[in-house]
């Protein structure tokens, strides 16, 4: 089954990184995967996004009409992507920055204090890693061990000093996501 996830936030929030880690984890599980950044003319400090498509068959369209999930880390991203998530899909929202957004009734909305959890993990800049943890904890897209291995590969080589914080941030997000994961009888969301 093909699943598409949009990651969006301020440049510098680790949006492309979170997408790459997910893509790498999916690849390690021998899944098909496609990662595409928005590379349009964005202002410095503007919104960055990337889309990751994970599937068991070769990925077709790189353009997704309605993503199955969106990770939105700032208000402009919420405004831009929240409306596009497929009905019954998942929104992972950085509650710290996206305060009083109107909730959509027909999607699962995971509101997470990403900044606080990242800070607790040791680095408040790791908001996207917390959100990735929540996404994976909730959806079970890939095994958490695959994500941890991907983080070790990517971060371990370049920034071994922040590796422990990255792993802790992922675990913190994953705990929240897994706890909120719906039981079978709660999967249906009222339209």
């Amino acid at each position: 089954m093909e699943r598409s996830i949009v990651f969006a936030g301020f440049g510098g929030q680790g949006i492309l990184f979170a997408g790459k880690v997910l893509a790498r984890a999916a690849m390690a599980e021998d899944r098909e995967v496609f990662w595409i950044p928005s590379y349009g003319p964005e202002m410095r400090g503007g919104t960055a996004s990337c889309t990751v498509i994970v599937g068991d068959e070769p990925i077709g369209s790189p353009i997704v009409d309605e993503p199955d999930a969106a990770v939105v880390l700032n208000p402009p991203s919420y405004a831009k992507f929240a409306a596009h998530v497929a009905p019954g899909g998942l929104l992972v929202v950085n509650e710290t920055l996206v305060g009083e957004a109107a909730e959509r009734g027909d999607v699962h909305e995971l509101r997470i204090p990403c900044t606080r959890l990242a800070k607790d993990a040791g680095d408040d800049s790791l908001v996207s890693v917390v959100a990735l943890g929540a996404l994976v904890g909730y959806l079970g897209l890939v095994r958490p061990a695959s994500i941890r291995a991907a983080i070790r590969e990517v971060v371990g080589a370049r920034r071994p000093d922040v590796l422990a914080a990255d792993l802790a941030a992922f675990d913190a997000g994953h705990r929240v996501g897994a706890r909120r994961r719906p039981h079978e009888d709660r999967v249906t969301v009222p339209a």
Partner: peptide, 8 residues
């Protein structure tokens, strides 16, 4: 798209 995307 082909230039910017990543695939395994």
């Amino acid at each position: 798209i082909l230039g910017q995307a990543m695939e395994p």
